[in-house]
Structure formats: structure tokens, C-alpha cells
Nucleic acid binder design. Structure first.
Length: 683
RNA sequence: GGCGAGGUAGCUCAGCUGGUUAGAGCGCAUGAUUCAUAAUCAUGAGGUCGCCGGUUCAAGCCCGGCUCUCGCUACCA
């Protein structure tokens, strides 16, 4: 694309089912904010849109658990998230939400347009229905016994105990999570977006047309497209969401991933309604000369590169994203960030505990952003980057330049005299920083761009060290004037270049320089501050972070870890009472493993040959991650021998080896302690 | 198991279509310096570029195999 007329920047809609943490910031919002601020500084026509994603099943589950309405859940988190972004200076033009009437209308119209054009496939299937609650049950709303591990609290989509992916009809003894009633199978109609029809379009648009996308994004897309795309359901039986705008679709809502990306569009509409220009949003979404960029995390690639573009293409009026610079994930102290395990640095907590240090976190997260692979955030690294880079290099240079000027020239920009060769060299290098920062930003290389910003401060420190104005002052004050004049120009450039990255610091620094903002185009100029200009009051931009602060944060995480361990160490409650007869039905025998081998093309399965005393039989067991075949051969084990045979990967498994599972998921073989020949009955 | 991404100095990362002694920042060591929040500046140590094999006059970069990490997926009594 040649120079775009305008830009539409979107940032992934955070899911309003919890607060936001540093992973969100590092992966999506810091990059999008830097990019947006940079474009604005250049005077580009740009809008940055975002909002809360407020539909979907998990929110209804949270609401039920907390005894409140879904609306109350999203109101709470929408407020928290919005405030956290504002306080970190994430400068969206609009931060909307998908529960708004505006969005409901837009998403509904979008669906209806595709429906009228015949872009959907209608399909009727049988699904579980709760006759008492009079509603269809989402997979998550059905519990029952896992057919694989007999866990009695498996969900319709997954058993959290054994990790199996399930379908609700597989559950033994299914129950509605709402009323506890036994659900019945009932016919229901759903609409599917036939992604397979867009395969050719996607192949040409991405695989041919966007080879410049980041390798992780391009590779994922290629993987999906080559793997063959399937029709995807875009409606759900649920009472929380946007009603499907079709006759006979009572009780059905749009699938959250259908409505969420449309939220970008409705947020833009809301923005222009506020501006009193209701049609003003259109060029930002429908004009070929608009550059649309989606900032997301890697978990969103398929929706932003495959599903949403197919929707936009089907609709027909919309432009497609020019790029989707997805980041990888950020870990915290060597462990995955997890909301449910409370393993995170929450933004609202950081803001409370580190007031005035928004830019420190912005800096740290940008410098260590997971641009090409997952990265780790550690508090030690946070401290080191603050103390060794922001304080020592950036803050110190600014302080030196200002203090020296105060001392020798009373805080006024001194006149510039003849420039030495070294002065000229330094200014030439300063002039070069503009191109370097711009090139990196436009290629979405934010870490590298930030490094170039710091190089301005490094250049300043080196300049002062080499020219030694404090020594020259004893003999030649005119020369000192020139030196500090140059040093102050470097400082002013540092302030200007900092704007997109460290907005709070840039603001403070402009105040200390007694200057208003400069146009971005002037970056690199040697005459930002004129001779005689009166500077403002110097102050420290950053302060050291002591060890004790870091230790307190580490202790907090350690406490979380221990709380989690305590929780997972809780022994599972006793199952419901059974009769002796129930137990007596089970035929458990002592057996000996005589052979063992890994099942081909699986990760967890071992094929075991066991002597049960009765016979020699084959049992397939999902223990390959815990035991090698060599370890198993010769082991005496307990086997449930009259379990119905079940084929696994084409091998009939004739029984089940009993294992004890520890709270942290390790398997331990249960074995007779003493002489007991194969075939001995356990009971 | 399949697919995708990644494995380069202690840490975080660059290395363009293969071509001189593999680079940067932070950390570390030594020296200089004192205007500055003991900050700065210079110099240096430190890498068999995950492992094995191949193509080539030449490979971190290309090809084959293996291995480890992350994600998706399959599969887990």
C-alpha cells in the first residue's frame, strides 16, 4: 500500500471476566499504543479503537457462581479494565463495550446481511436441553461422569481432571448445571459460516499477498488453511448475548467470536456519534486507502486472520487488515500467567503499589516484549531495567544537562559558537535517530525502536564525557556554552522521541525544558531550543528501585504459589455412597506386566501385555509420560479385569491398570506388598 | 503423533537473498572521570550460533535426521 490516507488501529478486546495484567499490556496494548501515538505525532489521520468483550459462556458462569447477573459481572470488569488502561496512558480514541445497544444493533445487522445474502449454512442437530430451566445447555453447563476417567464432575466440553476433550453426549449421567435436572436431547437449529468457501480467497490474500506478515502469524495461517477449513457455528443456545436476528431463533444468540470483532466497528461508530458525525466511521472501515491494523496476542490469530476477514469478505463492504502483528505470550517469573491461579501482576495492583511509575512498566514491558517468542517477566529484570537504564542512562543524562546549564548559565539555553568536528559528528548521529526509530516502528519492531530511543540518551552521556564542560568551564566559558547548547538539543530530542513510548516522562521532560511539544518531523534537529530560551524547573525523572521492593513482590508471588499448593493439596471429597454389590461387581486382580511398548503416534499411550492369572491380555494405558516401557516390564500391578474393552488407537484395551494420582498429577503404581500370585482377587 | 513458531555470549535479543576475525544492550572485569540519582566514559573477558550428517570454494543462514521449549491439534484409563 502506498502512503495510506488514514489508519484504523484496533487492539484485542479484553474479555470482561477478570482484570487485565502485564501480559495483556506487553502483548497488545503497549505496542498498539506506541504505534498509535507515533502516527498521531506524525500528524496522521488515525483512530485507535478498543472495548470490552462482554458476551460468552464464561461470563454467565462467573455470574452464576457469584450470584449476580452477567451484566453486573461485565460492568465491574469493564470499569476496572477501562480505568487501568487510562491510567497507563493507553490512548484509545474510544473504549467501548459489546453489551452496548449500538454494538448489538451493528452486530445484528451484520449477521442479518450475511443471512440475507445466503452466506450461512443452516443445520439442525440434537443438543441437550434442560426441561426445567426451559433452555438449551451450553457444553459448559452440563456436568456428568467422564467416560474416560470416571471423574463425576466433568464438563460437557472437557474433563478437567484427565484433560480430555469431550462432547456433551459422551458424558455418563449428564446433569444440568443450572437445575441439576437430567437434560434431554432436543433438536436445535444453528447457523454456520462455511469457512471452506473462503479458502481460495484466504490463500491468495494471506499466503500470496501478505508474505511480509510476522513468521508466527503467517505460519499459523498457512497451517490452518492447508489443514482444510470447516464450517464454523456462529450461533449458540444461550440467553446472554446478541439475539440471532432471524425468525424462529428465539433463545439463540450470536457466538461471541462472531460478535466480538464487529465490536471494533461499533466502537468506531460510537466514536463518530460522539463527534457528531454519525457517518464519519465509514471511511475508516470501508475505504481502500485506509490501513487497518489489528494488534492481538497469538491466541487470537485464527479469529483475526481467518474468521473475521472471511466475515468481512462475505459482507462485501469492508476493507481487510493490512497487517496483524500478533505477539507471543509473556510469562511471569518462569511460570505461565494464569488468572485462575492468580499468577499475574494485575495492573490495578501495580498502579496502587507503584504510583507514578507507569512509564517504568511501559518501558520494561516494551524492552522485553514477546515479539518473536514467549518471554519472561521477572521483578529482578524490572529492577535492573529501571536502575541501570532508566535511572542511570536516561534520567542521569537529562539531569546532568539541566544541572550544568543551571550552574553555568542560570537555566537559560546558552548561545552556540563554532562547532568542533566532534560536535558535528554527534549532531549527525542525532539526526540519524529519526529514520531508525521510524523504520523500526513501521515494521512493528518495538523493542528495537525503544533501543534507538535509549541511544539518544547514550549519545548525550558520551558527548558530555568527551567534551567535559565542567573542566572547560575553568578556562573557556564560550566553549561551555556551545557544549551545553548541544547537550540541551539532545535532551529536547530525547523528549520528543520519548512521546510514543514514555508519554508521562515525555510530558515531565517537556515541562522541565519549559517547552511545548515539537512536531515529530523536527526529530533530529539541532535547533529545537533557541538561544536564550528559559528552561523550567529540573526534577528527577526516575528513582532507583530498592531490593526490598523487589523482594516484597517476590514474597507476594511466593505466597500465591503456596496458597495454590495448599489448594491443590486438598484431598478430593468422598464420592457418593455405593452399596457392597456395586463394589462386588468389580473384578480386580493382581497381575504382572510381561511386555510394554509405546503406541505409535501417540504421546501418552503405552501398550502393555499383562499376565492376569486368568489369561494374558493387552491393556492400553495413558501413562507414557510417567513411565517408560522398560520401567513397566516386570512390575506387579492391580488390574480391573472386567472393564468393558475399549479400542484405543486401533488397539483393544482389555482392562484398566489401577494407579494412584497425587494432587500435583503424578502417577504412582499400586502394587501388592508381599507375595500374591497373578490372578489373586483384590477385594 | 501431525502442524506452526523458537533454540545465537550469564540475561534479553540483532544477524538482509550463504562470503572477511559472529554483533548490540544489560551484567561482569580493569582503567579513566567526578557535572550527575556511586550515575558516566573507555577497554576487555566471555559464544564448537541445540545435536548429528549432507550440499557448497564458502553455512548461524540451504537440505535430511534427531533433540528441547511454547502454541494449535490428535490422543490420553
Amino acid at each position: 500500500m502506498k502512503t495510506p490516507k488514514r489508519y484504523t488501529i484496533t487492539s484485542a478486546l479484553p474479555y470482561a471476566n477478570g482484570p487485565v495484567h502485564i501480559g495483556h499490556l506487553a502483548g497488545v496494548y503497549i505496542p498498539s499504543d506506541i504505534y498509535t501515538r507515533y502516527l498521531r505525532a506524525r500528524g496522521a489521520d488515525v483512530i485507535s479503537v478498543c472495548g470490552s468483550d462482554e458476551h460468552g459462556v464464561p461470563i454467565t458462569i462467573t455470574a452464576r457462581r457469584e450470584g449476580v447477573t452477567p451484566q453486573q459481572v461485565v460492568d465491574k470488569y469493564h470499569g476496572m479494565i477501562k480505568e487501568a488502561f487510562e491510567r497507563f496512558g493507553i490512548a484509545f480514541d474510544v473504549y467501548s463495550r459489546t453489551s452496548s445497544p449500538r454494538h448489538h444493533r451493528t452486530a445484528s445487522d451484520f449477521f442479518r446481511r450475511l443471512y440475507d445474502q445466503g452466506d450461512f449454512i443452516e443445520q439442525t442437530t440434537e443438543q441437550y436441553y434442560d426441561p426445567e430451566a426451559k433452555q438449551f445447555l451450553a457444553d459448559r453447563y452440563i456436568t456428568g461422569t467422564c467416560p474416560r476417567c470416571q471423574n463425576e464432575r466433568a464438563y460437557g466440553d472437557q474433563c478437567e481432571k484427565c484433560g480430555s476433550t469431550l462432547s456433551p453426549t459422551e458424558l455418563i449421567d449428564p446433569k444440568s448445571a443450572i437445575t441439576g435436572a437430567a437434560p434431554i436431547l432436543k433438536e436445535t437449529k444453528h447457523w454456520f459460516l462455511p469457512l471452506d468457501r473462503y479458502e481460495g480467497f484466504l490463500r491468495e490474500w494471506i499466503l500470496e499477498g501478505h508474505k511480509e506478515w510476522k513468521p508466527n502469524v503467517y505460519g499459523q495461517c498457512k497451517s490452518w488453511i492447508d489443514g482444510g477449513l470447516l464450517p464454523r457455528a456462529v450461533s449458540r443456545d444461550l440467553d446472554w448475548g446478541i439475539p440471532v436476528p432471524v425468525e424462529g431463533a428465539e433463545g439463540k444468540v450470536l457466538y461471541v467470536w462472531f460478535d466480538a470483532p464487529i465490536g471494533y466497528i461499533s466502537a468506531t461508530q460510537e466514536l463518530f456519534e460522539q463527534r457528531g458525525d454519525p457517518d464519519g466511521w465509514k471511511p475508516y472501515w470501508q475505504d481502500d486507502e485506509t490501513k487497518l491494523v489489528h494488534f492481538i496476542g497469538k491466541d487470537n490469530i485464527v479469529f483475526h486472520c481467518i474468521v473475521f476477514p472471511s466475515m468481512l469478505k462475505a459482507h462485501g463492504d469492508y476493507i481487510l487488515p493490512e497487517n496483524v502483528p500478533a505477539n507471543e505470550f509473556l510469562n511471569l517469573e518462569n511460570d505461565k500467567i494464569s488468572t485462575s491461579r492468580n499468577w499475574a501482576v494485575w495492573l490495578h495492583e501495580y498502579l496502587a503499589e507503584f504510583p507514578g511509575k507507569e512509564d517504568v512498566l511501559r518501558y520494561t514491558l516494551c524492552a522485553n516484549a514477546p515479539e518473536t517468542k514467549d518471554n519472561d517477566f521477572t521483578w529482578r529484570d524490572f529492577q535492573a531495567r529501571n536502575n541501570n537504564e532508566l535511572v542511570a542512562i536516561y534520567g542521569n543524562f537529562v539531569n546532568r544537562a539541566l544541572v550544568l546549564t543551571e550552574k553555568y548559565f542560570g537555566g537559560t539555553v546558552p548561545p552556540v559558537g563554532p562547532l568542533t568536528e566532534f560536535d558535528q559528528q554527534t549532531l549527525a548521529e542525532l539526526a540519524g535517530c529519526k529514520r531508525l526509530i521510524e523504520e523500526n516502528l513501521e515494521a512493528y519492531r518495538f523493542r528495537e525502536a525503544l533501543r534507538e530511543l535509549m541511544n539518544i540518551a547514550r549519545l548525550g552521556n558520551k558527548y558530555l564525557a568527551d567534551t567535559e564542560p565542567w573542566k572547560v568551564a575553568k578556562t573557556d566559558l564560550d566553549r561551555v556554552a556551545t557544549i551545553l547548547h548541544v547537550a540541551l538539543q539532545i535532551t529536547a530530542n530525547l523528549a520528543l522521541a520519548s512521546g510514543p513510548f514514555l508519554p508521562f516522562t515525555a510530558g515531565k521532560l517537556f515541562g522541565m525544558l519549559g517547552a511545548d511539544k515539537f512536531a515529530w518531523d523536527r526529530l533530529g534537529a539541532a535547533d529545537l531550543l533557541p538561544e536564550g530560551h528559559r528552561l523550567g524547573t529540573p526534577a528527577l525523572l526516575f528513582e532507583k528501585i530498592e531490593d526490598s521492593v523487589v523482594e516484597a513482590q517476590l514474597a507476594k508471588l511466593e505466597a500465591t504459589k503456596q496458597a495454590n499448593q495448599a489448594a491443590s493439596a486438598t484431598v478430593a471429597p468422598q464420592k457418593e455412597t455405593i452399596q457392597f454389590d456395586d463394589f462386588a461387581k468389580m473384578d480386580i486382580r493382581v497381575a504382572q506386566v510381561t511386555a510394554a511398548e509405546k503406541v505409535e503416534k501417540t504421546q501418552k499411550l503405552l501398550k502393555l501385555t499383562v499376565d492376569t492369572g486368568i489369561d494374558t491380555r493387552t491393556i492400553v494405558s495413558g501413562i507414557a509420560e510417567h513411565f517408560t516401557p522398560e520401567q513397566m516390564v516386570g512390575k506387579r500391578v492391580l488390574v480391573l479385569v472386567n472393564l468393558a474393552p475399549r479400542p484405543l488407537k486401533g488397539i483393544e484395551s482389555q482392562g484398566m491398570i489401577l494407579m494412584a494420582e497425587t494432587p500435583d498429577g503424578k502417577l504412582v503404581i499400586v502394587s501388592p506388598d508381599g507375595e500374591a500370585p497373578a490372578g489373586s482377587i483384590v477385594g
